[in-house]
Simulated assay, not measured.
Amino acid sequence: MDLSGKIITQLPEVGGSSKSGNAWRKQEYILETGGQYPKKVCLSVWGDKIEQFGLKVGEQVTLGIDVESREYNGRWYTEVKVYKVDRTHGGIGPSEGPEVDTFYSESEEDKLPF
């Protein structure tokens, strides 16, 4: 599932050790979607992906997300985990330039066998 919007807040990084003794860390961000009725969504980035994705406040992004809920002591908790980041430039797609024929350059035109 994809989610697009602007990163408006970066929450403090948290970390610890699991029951098996493995270290873990998590960075959370708040993303605000666009449109007439914008929504705010808390997103989680885990482990090495924190540096790999390098999300910054103010950035426009499209994120690949997984949504998962789990039960603990009779209550349900939902987490939105980021697995992919695509950066956009102010909501504009790839730059549209003139179409260029890359098969040959002008100096090679006479060398073509046909």
Rank of each mutant, 00 (worst) to 15 (best):
L3S: 02
G5A: 03
K6D: 02
I8R: 04
T9S: 02
T9Y: 01
Q10E: 14
L11Y: 08
L11E: 09
P12Q: 02
P12W: 06
E13D: 09
V14M: 13
V14T: 15
G16V: 11
S18I: 05
S18E: 05
K19G: 07
K19S: 13
K19A: 10
S20F: 04
G21E: 06
G21N: 04
G21H: 04
N22P: 04
A23S: 15
K26F: 02
K26N: 08
Q27I: 05
Y29L: 07
Y29H: 02
Y29G: 00
Y29P: 03
Y29N: 02
I30E: 06
L31W: 03
T33A: 05
T33K: 08
T33I: 04
Y37Q: 12
P38D: 11
K39S: 10
K40G: 00
K40I: 01
K40Q: 11
V41E: 13
C42M: 14
W46F: 05
W46S: 04
W46A: 06
G47V: 07
K49D: 01
I50R: 01
I50V: 02
I50Y: 01
Q52L: 12
K56N: 13
V57D: 01
V57L: 05
Q60T: 15
Q60L: 15
L63I: 03
I65Q: 03
D66F: 07
D66W: 05
V67H: 10
V67R: 11
E68M: 07
E68N: 11
Y72T: 07
N73D: 11
G74Y: 10
R75I: 05
Y77H: 09
T78Y: 08
E79P: 07
E79L: 06
V80A: 01
K81P: 01
K81N: 12
K81E: 12
K81M: 09
D86Q: 04
D86Y: 03
D86K: 08
D86V: 03
D86C: 00
D86S: 03
R87N: 08
R87V: 04
T88C: 10
T88M: 14
T88F: 11
T88V: 13
H89P: 10
G90M: 07
G91I: 13
G93Y: 13
P94L: 14
S95F: 14
E96C: 00
E96W: 00
G97E: 14
P98Y: 00
P98L: 04
P98V: 05
V100S: 01
T102G: 13
T102W: 14
F103I: 06
F103A: 10
Y104G: 12
E108S: 07
E109T: 07
D110C: 00
D110P: 01
D110Q: 06
D110I: 00
D110A: 06
K111H: 09
L112A: 10
P113L: 10
P113W: 14
F114M: 07
F114C: 05
